[in-house]
Every structure is written in C-alpha cells, then in structure tokens.
Design a protein around this nucleic acid. Structure first.
Lengths: 225, 225
DNA sequence: AGAAGTCGGTAACGTACGTTACCAAATAAC
DNA sequence: GTTATTTGGTAACGTACGTTACCGACTTCT
C-alpha cells in the first residue's frame, strides 16, 4: 500500500497531488489492484479497452500476435508507466495484445472512474489532458520527421528548426552524429554523406558538433520541394 | 447566434448536447466570439496556445513561416472544425502560425473555460477526451504505415490487417489502386510493380479489387524483417 | 607510450523505388 | 455503335540511399 502511493505520486497522472489526496480520491471511485503471472495475458487485441492502468510493479509488453501465433513486441512498460489511457476513450478496439513479462501488479481504473476523477479533481483533469496532449504532440513530431521525402529534407528540417530556436546561423547540435542519425531514422554513414554533399553544394559548413548555415534561403527552398 | 448554435451542435465537442444545454453551459464560462479579416493572423508560431477554437464561419490556414517570410500551408480548416484543442494543454508553444484565409468568425474558449466545462458536463468531458484520443489513434495508424521499411512491408501489413479483420484468405479491398497507393504514401506504379512481384513470388494472387493470400505464413515472415 | 575503445569521414556496391511514359481493359458518355 | 474517361499493368531509366567495410582522429586506461 505504501509502495503503491509512492509509485502513484511519481506518475504523471497524479502529479501535483499528495499521497493523502490520492488516497482519498481513489476511495471514492471503483478501482482494483490486479496481479498477473509472468506470461499471462492482461488484455487481448480486438477487445475493447476497459480501463486505464498504472504499472505498480513488474514489466509488461505490448505485442502484435500473428495468426500463426508468432508475437512481435512493439513496446514494453515498467513500474510507473501508464497504459490504456488513449484507447479507453478512442472509438476503436485494442490494436495490440498486452502481456505480463514478469509478475505484475496493476492499478486498474475503469473508464467511468477516470471520468469521475476528472470531475472531482481539477488537477487530475489537467494531468490527464496534458498526458494525452503531449502524446499527440510527440507523435506529430515523429510524423513530421518521417514524412520528409529525402535525407536532405530531414537534415534541413532539423537545422532550420534549430536556426529558429537559436536565432543564429552558427548552430550548436549538442548531440553526436549517431544520435542525430537515430533521431532522423537513417544510418550514420548516410547522414555523413549527405552532410558532405550539402557542404559541397555550399549550403552549410561544419566541424564537430557545430554547423554553420551558409545559405538559409536555399535551405528553405529545399523544404518546399 | 442561431447560426452559432447550429454549428456547435454539429461539432464533435458538443455532440449529444442540445442547443439549450450548450447555450446554458457557455453562459457560465468566459468565452468570446472573435472576428478576423482575410489574411489576418489569428495566432503566431512560438506563442503559447491560449484557447480552443471552433470555426463558426470562414476558413483558416495552418502555416509554417520561414525566416525569409515565405509561408507553406500545412493544413486548412473550415466551418465546424476545431483547432487548438491539442496545443492548449501540451507543454509546448504553437508549432505553426494560424491565419485567416477569408473573413472568419471563431468561438474562442480559454484554457480555463474548457476545464470548467469538463467539470460541469460529463458529456462535454467525454467528448473532449474522445477528440484527443481519436487523434492519437489516427496518428498512430499513420505512423505505423510510414515506419514500414519497404513497400512490400507496407502492402503486407495492410493485407494482414484485412486478413485478421475479414477472417478469410480471400480479401475484398474495396478501394482502387490509386486510393490504396495514396494511403500507403507511394506512387501507384510502385504499388502495381510490387504486387506483381509478390504474385511472382507465390505470396498472393489478385484480380481487380480482390486479393487472395497464398502464403499467410510467409507474409508474416516479411513483417519481421 | 602503447593498447583499446569511441566517433566521424569516406568509398564501393547493389538495389529498391520514384519518375515518366505508353498501352490495354473497363466503364461511362454521346 | 463510337468516342471519351477512368483504372490498372508494365517497361525503361536514373538515383537516392542502405549496407559493409576500412581508416584516421581523439579519448581513456594501464
């Protein structure tokens, strides 16, 4: 029990609420702490999502299970993580299966309880909103990067974002080539090659972790193609 | 005024609420109906997002404005559409600029008013949640498609989804090649070519808008690579 | 100082895929 | 019927990019 409050007060759903407040709120709505054995199914693809879950202990995997029974892990969650918060209010069934990777303990808040909590506590409401909104934002960012047509566009897009942010043509990257390549979803040699080509084209210059924009106008042009 | 209630009762934020209820709810929270001239800025990139807006009439554009002043339209909204519902609770400034494309009339609900409305009306709360959740779901779907490595994976992914859905190896597509290609984000000839190759490889057979899966096992294999 | 590990640049090679173009089949229009 | 129009297949071509491999520059350890 003490353990549970520790986890909850750390998790974004209950931030800015103290243990006493959380305890009291929970007492007023139906909820359950459920345990699952290793390899036990927590929720199955295609089912409707019935509750928001907070992982109190253990690890779970989000899996795509194919007809043949083969399963591919799409994501994993561990203590303090929340799941189901999106699908519980979306008009769609679960797109994947949730399985316990270890012995697992979950706080399960039924769909209706979450609504009640939102009505009860402005702080909880705001936390939930922020959770969803930030998720949308993050997905949008990823999507933007993926939808650039070429590697040059990906690079240019991020350079121009930094340009706007740092208000200078002398940009500090602050990350290694490998990290940058990972963010853009491309292999490192491809990144290096394109940087070299852009340098040859007179668009940029660089050494180590700093990049100088030589022709911001032309860079913007690239984003339009 | 009558006009405004017409629009609101149609929009997903106020669905399942009748005009009288909406009217009463709005009277209890601060809100404003704002007008903008054609080409006037409604909100500027980098600013914090202060309200959720419902477009009562006219059209607005979401634009990315570059340093040189050149603007690229990312999306447009028209009567009945909602915007700002994500950024108003996300921990980030506006990623783009909003501009009036025509004479525009907006219902602007300040951040706090929306919270109050959620507390007041369970139906409104649920509508808002559904709005955000469905957006996350949609983005996830797009992201899934985009993140497949090859065209063959994109095709296979959607075929297997249909397989699971229709529970038969004889799939009805229900859309034209062009539409399918658009959804996958690839040119139509590329789709045709890959379908032909997959047929040659003995994976599928097809004619017109129906596809038969000849080797579901092998198709699953493709998704793992 | 030498060994070992990390980090970035570069080259060679093959291929998946975008692009363009043209053609056949099916459907709609007259 | 004969044209248009849409819809889908196919071929030829160039290239952007993934893959692999190797090498030099820098750090860190002993």
């Amino acid at each position: 029990m003490m353990k549970m409050m520790m986890v909850l007060s750390q998790c974004p759903l209950f931030q800015d609420l103290d243990a006493a407040a959380i305890h009291e709120m929970l007492q007023q709505v139906s909820h359950q702490v459920a345990s699952f054995q290793k390899d036990q199914l927590i929720a199955v693809e295609g089912d409707p999502c019935r509750h928001v879950s907070v992982l109190l202990s253990g690890q779970v995997a989000v899996q795509k299970v194919y007809g043949s029974g083969r399963a591919v892990t799409v994501a994993t969650f561990s203590t303090g993580d929340i799941f189901g918060e999106v699908m519980v209010y979306a008009d769609h069934p679960l797109p994947s299966t949730i399985m316990a990777l270890t012995q697992v303990s979950l706080l399960q808040l039924p769909r209706e309880s979450v609504l009640t909590l939102c009505q009860m506590s402005p702080a909880f409401l705001e936390n939930f909103m922020r959770l969803l909104s930030n998720k949308v934002w993050l997905l949008n960012e990823k999507l933007k990067l993926l939808s650039y047509a070429s590697i040059r566009q990906k690079i240019t897009g991020t350079l121009l974002a930094l340009y706007q942010q740092q208000q200078s043509t002398e940009l500090a990257l602050g990350i290694s080539r490998q990290e940058l390549a990972d963010r853009l979803g491309i292999p490192r040699p491809s990144l290096s090659r394109e940087l070299a080509l852009m340098k040859a084209d007179g668009l940029i210059d660089y050494r180590k972790q700093s990049v100088r924009l030589l022709a911001p106008e032309s860079l913007e042009e690239i984003m339009l193609q």
